[in-house]
Amino acid sequence: MAKEPLSSPGITINGFTLIEVMVSLFFLTIAAMALLQGLDLAFRQYSLAQTRWEAIVELWNQIEQSRATSSSQGEAIQIIPDSRPLYRTVFSDPRLGEQSGWEVLSAEK
């Protein structure tokens, strides 16, 4: 029995066209760029979190220092009539955003 030819006459196997190769390379590049962009974003967020963490610890230390040294700083507030006033101080840090701040109320020692 005679073998059938693998390719019929008149059919040409061209393989990938240049366009197909370019498209696949484009997708490969996009995938690689997406990986790097994701990593870059992760490091940016990490750096931001690190900066905020340092700012928060510094603020915390300022507040504790303030409580330990002098308590009668800031704006005087009298919540109950004829009582000793409380002193309101807002501690903020530009690294935490303009709207953020810790409000500390303290009494005279």
Binding site: L35, F43, Y46, W60
Partner: peptide, 29 residues
């Protein structure tokens, strides 16, 4: 491609180590 992928793995591992270090410290406050 594999160079980029290798870099990605290296820095992902580094970031993981840094985050693990810091998440320990973040418990303190």
């Amino acid at each position: 491609f594999f160079s980029i992928f290798g870099q990605f793995q290296t820095w992902s591992s580094n970031l993981n180590l840094l985050l693990e270090r810091d998440e320990n410290l973040w418990l303190a406050p």
